[in-house]
Simulated scan of single mutants.
Amino acid sequence: MKNIFTQAVTEEIIQRINQLTPASQPLWGSMTVSQMLAHCNVTYEMVYEDKHPKPNAFMRFILNLLVKPIVVSEKPYKHNSHTAKQFLIKDTKDFEQEKARLIRHIQQTQALGEAHFEGKESHSFGKLKSQEWNNMFYKHLDHHLRQFGV
Rank of each mutant, 00 (worst) to 15 (best):
H123Y: 03
H123G: 04
F5N: 06
F61D: 05
Y138R: 02
E114C: 06
T43V: 12
A38S: 13
T109I: 11
M1S: 08
N41Y: 00
Q131K: 11
G29C: 07
F125Y: 06
I89V: 14
G149F: 03
R101W: 05
V67M: 12
Q110R: 10
V33K: 07
K68H: 08
K129A: 10
Q147T: 08
P55Q: 03
H39Q: 03
S24Q: 07
V71S: 03
E12Y: 04
K127P: 00
T21V: 04
Q86N: 14
L128G: 02
W133K: 05
V150G: 03
A84S: 15
K85I: 13
I106G: 03
M36N: 11
A57D: 14
L63F: 15
C40Y: 02
S34I: 09
D142P: 01
N80T: 04
A57V: 14
V67Q: 13
V67C: 10
K68V: 11
L20W: 07
Q86R: 14
D91S: 13
T32H: 10
D94S: 13
T92N: 15
E45F: 12
T92H: 11
A57C: 09
F95A: 03
P76V: 02
L145C: 02
W28H: 10
M36F: 09
H116C: 08
K120F: 06
H105L: 06
K54T: 00
I13V: 13
Q110K: 07
N41E: 06
Y138K: 04
T43F: 11
R60E: 10
K120T: 01
P69K: 09
K127Q: 12
N3L: 00
A100R: 05
S34V: 12
T6E: 14
G113W: 04
H79I: 13
Q107F: 01
Q35T: 06
M36G: 13
K99W: 10
V150E: 02
R101L: 12
L27I: 13
K90M: 10
P53M: 01
I13H: 00
S24L: 02
I14F: 02
M1T: 07
K2E: 14
L37N: 01
